[in-house]
Each structure stands twice: as structure tokens, then as C-alpha cells.
Design a protein around this nucleic acid. Structure first.
Lengths: 119, 119
DNA sequence: TAGGGGACTCACCCGTGGGTAAGTATGAGG
DNA sequence: CCTCATACTTACCCACGGGTGAGTCCCCTA
């Protein structure tokens, strides 16, 4: 399963990172994701309340992209009024540690900013 | 040095990740970064040759942003014709493993996409 | 005196990501 | 019959990130 091969050329690697980044780029994606991390299950209207400033259009759009990209799971209950629940897929959940890596990197900024790296 | 504190709220964490991402977002940033990873030292004109499709304006702009953000180091030699060398700072270099984490995450996609994560 | 190499900057244009406001569907309840 | 709640679309607008092409500065060489 998921064997990981190092990309051969620099630009191939750049492409792959860009592709990965595209999945989480978007004005509201991270906010949505972080609402979901930890296995939480959230309804559309809950997102609206939890995320100040987001519009229904944007919320729907970003959720659909996350769903299309396999990060979140959408479950519709055929009731009236409608109910839709969103949760992370296993893959979406596993994004958390990767983002944590970024956070850790960012946190080392002050310590390392001034020196050029040795050859 | 660089003590790392977990962000308290979901949206605070999202903010911090967004801030980190802003540093590497930009049409050509990753391509540039990957040219530099491994301690390579690259001149302006070398970038132009190595990165097909990039314009001088864009190259200069992205390099300046990377420099401003502390990822790359710029050294000017007062010669004619001018010579300018770019290399990663230690911090910039240390971004590599974090990106690798993203790559690894992306690589597990096929294996995990279909299931919702347990509660 | 013209041309070239090197590293830029500047003026202008355009596509798209995102913002706002309004519209839609359904059935329950007053 | 009107309204409410929920989960969305749809139409329209604008800002800004990025693309193109030309201009600049400096000295050396032919």
C-alpha cells in the first residue's frame, strides 16, 4: 500500500507539492478542515454559525471541492427540513499531522531566519 | 529555542497554517524553492534558463518575496555585468522535510479515500 | 558608436477566485 | 395560506495575482 517514491527531478517534486496544496488552498478550506479535525461531525448550518463571515455559496463550494477531492464525506438525510452531515475521510483526517509539520516548521522561524545554510 | 505550542482553537490553528502557506504560495515559489533545495546556489539568469515560461518580472517578484519572508538569501556582487546569487537560508532549507510530509500524505490517497474516519 | 550581457523595473491587460443578494425546494405547523 | 427551517443555486460584480512587452543602468568589447 501507498508506497512513497521520491520524485526524481526538482520540478516534478514541485508539481506534486503544488497538486497537494491545491487540495487545501481556497479561502475557507482550512477553516472548514480544522472544524472537522478530531472526528467531529458538522452540519451545514453549524458551519455557518461556527465560521463568521462565510457565505452559503462559499461554504457549499468549498465543501464540494473537499468532497470531490476525497477529504470530506457528505451524508444527506432525506428529511424535511433537510439535514446534511460532513465529516473527514480517513485520508482527510491523516492530513492533520502533515499540517502539524508545517506549523512546526513555521515555528522555528525566529531561530533560523538570519543564516544562510551551509553548502 | 523554537518551542512549539499547540494552537488552542481550531480557527487559530487554521490561521497559523494559512500564514505558513502564504509564504510558499505563488505561481513560481515552489519551483524556485526546489531549484534551491540541497544547498544549491543559483544566479538570476540560471533561474531563467532552468524554469521555462517564467518571466523576469515574475522571477524577480517571487524571489523578493521569498527573501523578504526569510526563505532565501540574496547576495549581490558589485561587478559589471551584475551578478546576483540566491541560496536558501537555514530556515528555507528546513522547509524541505515539511513539504515531504505533505508529499507523503498525498501519496496515501488511494489507500484511504473511500472510508469515513471513525468517531 | 553600436551592441551585448545581466538583473532588473514599469505600464498595461486579463482571468478567476471570491463577495453579495436573491431565488429554489419541501413539508410541518399556526 | 403563510411562514419557517435547511441546504443549497444562480446572477452579477470587483480586486488582484499573474502575463506581456518594453525600458533602464552599467561597463566592456569590437
Amino acid at each position: 500500500m501507498g508506497k512513497y517514491e521520491e520524485p526524481s527531478t526538482p520540478d516534478a517534486a514541485a508539481d506534486r507539492v503544488e497538486e497537494a496544496l491545491k487540495l487545501i488552498e481556497g479561502r475557507w478550506k482550512l477553516v472548514i478542515l480544522f472544524q472537522l479535525f478530531g472526528g467531529r461531525v458538522v452540519r451545514f448550518s453549524e458551519f455557518e454559525r461556527a465560521i463568521p463571515g462565510i457565505s452559503q455559496k462559499m461554504l457549499a463550494q468549498q465543501l464540494r471541492q473537499l468532497e470531490r477531492d476525497g477529504l470530506v464525506n457528505r451524508v444527506v438525510y432525506p428529511e424535511v427540513p433537510p439535514r446534511v452531515e460532513y465529516r473527514l475521510t480517513a485520508w482527510g483526517q491523516s492530513l492533520c499531522p502533515a499540517l502539524d509539520g508545517l506549523l512546526r516548521w513555521a515555528a522555528t522561524r525566529e531561530a533560523l531566519t538570519d543564516g544562510a545554510s551551509g553548502s
